[in-house]
Amino acid sequence: MGTVGNSTDGIAGERRQLINVAYRLLGSASEAEDAVQDAYAHWYGLPRSRREEILSPGAWLTTVTGRICLDLLGSARARRERYVGAWLPEPLPDRAEWDHAGGSDPADQIVLDESVVMAFLVVLESMTPAERVAFVLHDVFRYPFAEIADVLGRTPAACKQLAASARRRAGVARAPVTATDRADVVRDVKEAWETKDIAALVGLLDPAAVMTADGGGAVGTVLRPVEGGERIAQYMVAIADRAPGLELLERSVNGVPGLVARHAGVVMTVASFDVGDGCVTRIWVVRNPEKLRPWTRRG
């Protein structure tokens, strides 16, 4: 899992990679940062003689981070049962689009690619913890099963089976949607939403579209998914009616075109879209303020 020099600089240089691994495993930048900090605490808690014996500190840190994430995923199920409404992964801004200096936020360390789009992260949520770890480490980061076995405490053959099972859960990939096509659809949704044009929204939404919202019990939102293009369109217009002065911005969300709703300069909502055959099939709306922290103090 990568060999680095056994030095303080080499160890510190692993942090970005570890945060990228942990975010894909946990779906939360803040929890990923905590997991990585915990792994570093384990490293520095080792006697110096033990650290000097470890030939690949990067591999050691990845293994420990993976185990910490595995434990967190195991306990997440109970936490989700207590969560108010639907739980969605934490959305990530594109730091190039926002006035945010320094890059100290863990979200700024995460590479935005196809393995962090909301649709993919939601699929990862359907996997067992062991499947998710095996799948992410092997299929996304290309770690060999022999090394993944150290994380999961299973044989390489068992890890290979877990990844195959996870792949089946992920399903058959659809034809890719170009960034331009996706941006065009999202822009049309924005314009129809701003003008409260229900007919136009219905035309942009798949008749079987589903909208899921995450308010975490901290802000008002629907607690169950809204199903059907017409019902979603009516709900979106009702939101616009209740929130005069809401500003909609076209912004990248987890690396693909999405919408950000701002009121008085404060980000209130981040919406992600799945697009197929020229229309929206899924909408994921995050309103939980705890999950919008990476979007604060940005412009």
Rank of each mutant, 00 (worst) to 15 (best):
residue 117 V to L: 07
residue 198 I to G: 04
residue 260 V to I: 04
residue 299 G to W: 05
residue 15 R to L: 09
residue 229 G to P: 15
residue 115 S to K: 04
residue 135 F to Y: 04
residue 9 D to V: 10
residue 219 V to W: 01
residue 180 T to V: 01
residue 48 R to L: 06
residue 199 A to E: 04
residue 221 T to R: 12
residue 94 D to V: 06
residue 159 C to M: 15
residue 216 G to F: 02
residue 189 V to I: 11
residue 178 T to V: 07
residue 160 K to Y: 13
residue 82 R to Q: 09
residue 69 C to G: 13
residue 250 E to H: 01
residue 100 H to E: 15
residue 219 V to E: 01
residue 135 F to L: 02
residue 287 R to Q: 09
residue 255 G to P: 15
residue 189 V to M: 05
residue 230 E to D: 12
residue 249 L to D: 08
residue 25 L to T: 11
residue 256 V to P: 15
residue 208 A to V: 05
residue 272 S to Q: 09
residue 62 T to K: 12
residue 72 L to M: 07
residue 35 A to S: 08
residue 66 G to Q: 12
residue 158 A to H: 14
residue 179 A to K: 13
residue 47 P to G: 03
residue 299 G to D: 13
residue 297 R to C: 09
residue 158 A to W: 04
residue 165 S to E: 01
residue 120 F to N: 15
residue 241 D to K: 03
residue 210 V to C: 09
residue 263 H to E: 03
residue 240 A to P: 04
residue 170 A to L: 10
residue 114 E to K: 06
residue 152 L to S: 14
residue 188 D to P: 14
residue 258 G to S: 07
residue 193 W to N: 06
residue 26 L to I: 04
residue 206 D to P: 00
residue 55 L to S: 15
residue 146 A to Y: 12
residue 120 F to T: 09
residue 49 S to R: 09
residue 249 L to W: 07
residue 284 W to K: 05
residue 148 I to W: 08
residue 127 M to W: 05
residue 173 A to L: 06
residue 47 P to N: 12
residue 165 S to G: 00
residue 261 A to H: 04
residue 201 L to K: 05
residue 81 E to Y: 01
residue 62 T to E: 03
residue 73 L to S: 10
residue 238 A to E: 02
residue 275 V to M: 00
residue 140 V to N: 15
residue 109 Q to T: 09
residue 66 G to P: 14
residue 226 V to W: 07
residue 233 A to P: 13
residue 234 Q to R: 11
residue 34 D to F: 12
residue 46 L to N: 14
residue 139 D to G: 02
residue 40 Y to F: 15
residue 87 W to V: 07
residue 295 W to E: 09
residue 121 L to C: 08
residue 26 L to R: 07
residue 162 L to V: 00
residue 229 G to I: 05
